[in-house]
Structure formats: C-alpha cells, structure tokens
Design a protein around this nucleic acid. Structure first.
Lengths: 343, 343
DNA sequence: CTGAAAGCGCTAACAT
DNA sequence: ATGTTAGCGCTTTCAG
C-alpha cells in the first residue's frame, strides 16, 4: 500500500534538502565514514526511506575511483565445467567484497577483447580473462593500467595452476596398480596459447617412460572435438587395451555407453576412467573413476590474487594444486585373460 | 616492442592538450556526433593511439545518463537450460546494442534482490529478472524508476510466454495417435510465484478431459527434486502405462536408463517422451522425442521488449509461443499386447 | 559534529 | 568547424 510516485529517482541533494542538512552529511550517514549525531542520523535515514533514495552506483564509482566490481570474460557458460566454475567465481568475488560482471564472448575473439577493454576502462577494478583463445599477453595489452589475470595458464601471471600432468600420472598409477599394462589414452587436445604440448599427453608418456617402457603410439588416440569416439575405442581394445582413460568425463560417459552397447562389462571386462568430476560422473552406471578438477580452490585463489593486486598487497607465490583421485566403480582389476577368450 | 609507461590512464583532457584542441573536440572525434575537419580528426586520432586513450566508461555513463548495459539476474548457470538461455540472452542484448551484466544469486533471495537493486541504481539501463523465486512485483519494487521485466512468468509484465499447457497437450496427442491410452506423467512441480497450478499438469488433465475420459490419478507421478524416479516408473508400468512422459529431458534420460537396465526396449515395449530439448536429448539412445523449449525466441523477444521500454517505444502485445514437437526414436506404436505376455 | 566547495572524467548545450 | 561552460550524482578535502 505504498504511494506510487512516477518513480523519478531522488538525488542525494534532494534528500539533503528535505532533511535540512548538507549532501555531505547524507553521504556520511550512509557510508558511516564519519561520526554523525544520532538525531541527524535518524532524520536523514527517515527521509532516505521515505523518498526511496538509493545512491547512484555509477556516480559513486566515479567519485570514489573504485567500482567494487570484477569483470570476468568467458567463452561460454553451457558446459558443466564453466557453469560450476562461474558459480564458484561468483562466490569468491562476493567473499572478497566485489561484485561480478560477466561477459560472454562466444567464439568471437574480438568480442572477448571488447569485453576486456570495456571492463578495464572504468567498469571494473580488476579483470579476469577466462577465454581459452586469449593469451595472457593479449589480455594484458587490452587492459592497460588495470590489474588483469588470466585463469589457469602455464604462465607466471596465473596465480594458481592445476597439475594436469601429475593428475594424469596419478590415474595411470591407479590403473597400473590394478594390473593394467596396456592403457589407452583418449585424448582431445586442448592447448592454451601459452603452451605447445598438452600436459595430459605428457603425463601419459612420462608415466611409461619412468617405468622404462616404450609407449605404444597406437594407444594414444587423438580425437577431434565433436568426433565419434567409438571407432577409436574399438581400435584400442583390438590393440589389447584393458583400460581406457578419457581426458574428460563427457568422453568417458560416451565410452561407458559404447561399452554397454557392445556388451562389454565395466569394470569386469574393461576399465574406464575420466577427468574433471563433472556432475554426471557420479550418476553414471557404473559411477566413474575420475580426477576431480579443483574448481572451488582454483576460483577462490585466482580471485584472491586479483583482489590482492587491486588492493596493493604483495603477490603470493604461484601455486600448483596437486591432483587427487576419485575412485569409483568404473575401474577394476585387469580381467584374467583379456585377449585369449577366443578358442 | 611497445614502450611500457607505468600505465597511468590518460584522460580526455590530456589528449586534448597534446593534440592542441578542446576536450569537446576530442569527444566528438570519438563519437562522430558532429562533423570535424579531417585534419583535426587525424591529429586527434594519432594522439589517442599514441597515448592509448580509452574513454572512462563510468564517466561516460554518468554524463550520458545511459550505460548501454542490461542487468540480468539468474539463480544459477549450471543447468544446460540456463546456460543455453544465457548465451541467447547475451546474443540478444548485443543485437540490441547493449552489453550484458550478469548477477548469479545462487539460492539466496537477498542476494538476488541486491543484484537487482544494484543494477537498477545506475549500473544498467534496464533489468531482467530470471530468478524463479523472485516475483514480478518484488522485482519491480526493487528497481523503482528503471524498466524491469521478469522472464517467463504468467503475468502481463512478461512480454513473451511459452504455452507449456498446449505443449503438454501436443505430446499427449502424439502419444495418443500412436495408440497409447494409458500415459503416465512423471512430473516435478515447478511453480512460479505467480501461479498456483503447474501448466504441465493442467495440460495432462485437460487432454483426458477433452476426450471425456476420467484421469487415472495413479498415472500422475509427482516427483521431488532429487528423487529417484525408478520406483515411480515401475509403478506406472505395473499400472498398465505404455508411455511415460517426463516433464524434462533429464528425467526422461533417467527413464531411458531405467528401461535399459530392466530390459525394456524403447520404443518397442515402452514409449518415453521428454520436455525441453536439452543438448543430451538428441545424443541419447534412442534419441528422445521431446518438446523443444523455444529459448532463442524467448530470449530475443524478452530482451527486445525490455529495450523497447528503455528506448520509449510502445509495448507490443504479450506473445504466447506455440509448442512444436520433435519426434525422434523414443516414442512408437503401442505394443500389441502390453500386459498379456505372461502366459 | 557539520557545511561549502572542489572535483571524478566525460558529454552536451550554448556560443562563436 | 571548434571552443567554453555547465553539469551528471556523488565523495572528499578543507574549514569551522
């Protein structure tokens, strides 16, 4: 039952006039940045409420030379990984006392750069580049004079990294420990502009190298982005693979389906492992053994590093998060005689 | 190989001084809002480039009393529907000449309101509420004096709606046409604050009512949010259901899995239908017959309505988008003798 | 404890 | 075609 004035927004001056004080006082009542007598304080608040006054954010930002906002630019928000990451990012921003501005660049690098530049030119106090195709250097060049960080790049500017190579090694060890010797890697290359080799591939090769074993190149199955992985899986099994390690849970899910369709039991006949711990991973039958991607930690530490830079605190050393293993039902002991069933 | 000055951002005045013109001229060179002699124009641009000048967005917004930004508040970005919707929203905003600001409110209504209010107080020219828990009226009350629209609510303020009731009816008709008479509805209630009945339930009941048939209440299977649907599915089949209609593709996917696990062939023994046309729907085996949710259209028209209001154009009439059917492999003719196989 | 005045960086009348 | 002058709505010295 409120009165409904045609909603012209009151300014701080009107509040001041009605309350019979200066606008400076109103400002200080609202910000608490200097002591105000209780009487005046109360009177001002009353007027603020009655008029429905809210400070104009843009004007405040200009005067304070600070927006309290962090600008993030992403390529997409559809994938479950990005979705989850963003929610953690949001939480981290809020936790640090900032609001989050999000730009979605789709596959348009120019649009990404436009968002970065926009954020950097007064909209945000700091900028976070999450677009895989935009390099650390490009992001920095686009945001002169503003703290910019790029998320998760093999570059000193990324405050925290995840050790994907070690993660791959860890999963290999797990499979090896179960008796698997011929482990296939189903691998969709995913290179940041800053690197020339995919750490997952390196981890796989290193694992065998460390054991003095020759890598069977035919077990490294490189997939294109939308490619059907069933022929590859078939080939791997023909080649004697007893375990299939996909570099994402989505791909691993497809493997499970393929296995089911072709009458292979997982993990009795074949082990399948994934990467990421996407939401589906636990829901699949059998549930998927995987390497969880430490999203909350990555988000929190990346944001904190950005905020540290904004607020002038000395940077912490770059962190390399160690991998963990989430062992569920899709991996098991190597079958007794994998290839000698024929007779 | 650029020089790297400690990145203090130049202002328009410095550009003006260096170029030997007034700041007004610089402004107009950049905005093209009044004719400038080629010579001056060129000189100014040179200085702009050399100094790396970029207009301060916040200051511009304040002076122009326009930000060119739309503020959207969502609950989450994890689900494939929200993810896809947001990307369409982003595209729609850009198409209309606005940038998109996104607030993620998680499950915190206060946070949602905080974002709405923040956007409304000068950060955005218009606000879009996509948080299911925030009513049209609450959103309006939170954003006085700023155009606010709430996405997809049964309320005159929502510029475009999707006819879920008709959509349900359409799918029922499809199943009916295949011979199914006992169709079960697996239904997770999803009520907006503005409505008291779920249109999907209404559509189901109306369908039978229009055919003068009594609805068998035992075929309306109401699920809680995370609830396992397998017992329900089992019960429905026991009750003689030959088709299962789930009110989301995710649920339908679970039905497919359950059917597979329990040795029921889809669609030979049982038809399964979904709702949404989520990305997985086409990828499932069998691919899922479903009702596509017209995301691009909804996004585009909602944004356009908001922009119309911002720019003072007269509002168009509310639109009710008609449903379509996407018939794929998961629905088929009723099996010859569904329950009389036992002997 | 409070007020007056000078900006924040830019745009938009209003001159010329 | 260009310059001068007021602001946009707020914060923040600097006085009192």
């Amino acid at each position: 039952m409120k009165s409904n004035p045609p909603a012209k927004k009151p300014t701080i001056r009107e509040v001041a006039r009605v309350a019979g004080v200066s606008s400076s006082t109103v400002s200080h009542v609202l910000s608490g940045k200097r002591p105000i007598s209780p009487a005046v304080c109360k009177r001002v608040r009353r007027v603020v409420d009655r008029l429905g006054y809210r400070a104009h954010a843009t004007a405040m930002h200009l005067a304070q030379r600070r927006t309290g906002q962090l600008g993030l630019v992403v390529r997409e928000v559809q994938s479950s990984v990005t979705g989850a990451l963003l929610e953690h990012m949001e939480a981290a921003c809020r936790g640090a006392g900032y609001k989050m501005l999000l730009g979605i660049a789709h596959d348009d690098a120019d649009l990404a750069v436009a968002y970065l530049g926009e954020f950097a030119s007064g909209l945000a106090d700091g900028v976070l580049n999450l677009v895989p195709g935009i390099s650390v250097d490009r992001a920095k060049a686009t945001c002169p004079g503003v703290p910019v960080l790029t998320y998760l790049r093999p570059h000193p500017d990324s405050p925290v990294l995840f050790d994907k190579k070690a993660a791959t090694g860890l999963m290999m060890e797990h499979l090896w420990g179960l008796g698997h010797r011929r482990i296939a890697l189903l691998w969709v290359p995913d290179l940041a502009p800053e690197q020339d080799r995919d750490p997952k591939e390196l981890g796989y090769r290193d694992f065998y190298a460390q054991r003095g074993q020759e890598v069977d190149e035919r077990l490294i199955l490189r997939l294109e982005d939308g490619e059907d992985l069933r022929p590859m899986a078939e080939a791997a099994v023909d080649m004697g693979a007893t375990a299939l390690f996909a570099t994402s849970d989505l791909r691993a899910a497809e493997l499970l389906r393929w296995a089911h369709e072709t009458g292979r039991r997982v993990p009795e006949d074949l082990s399948v492992a994934g990467f990421d711990d996407a939401p589906i991973a636990a829901a699949l039958v059998p549930s998927l053994t995987t390497v969880p991607f430490p999203l909350p930690d990555l988000a929190e530490k990346t944001v904190r590093a950005l905020v540290d830079r904004i607020e002038g605190r000395p940077p912490r050393a770059q962190e390399l998060l160690p991998p963990r293993l989430l062992i569920r039902q899709s991996t098991g002991k190597i079958p007794p005689s994998p290839t000698e069933k024929r007779p």
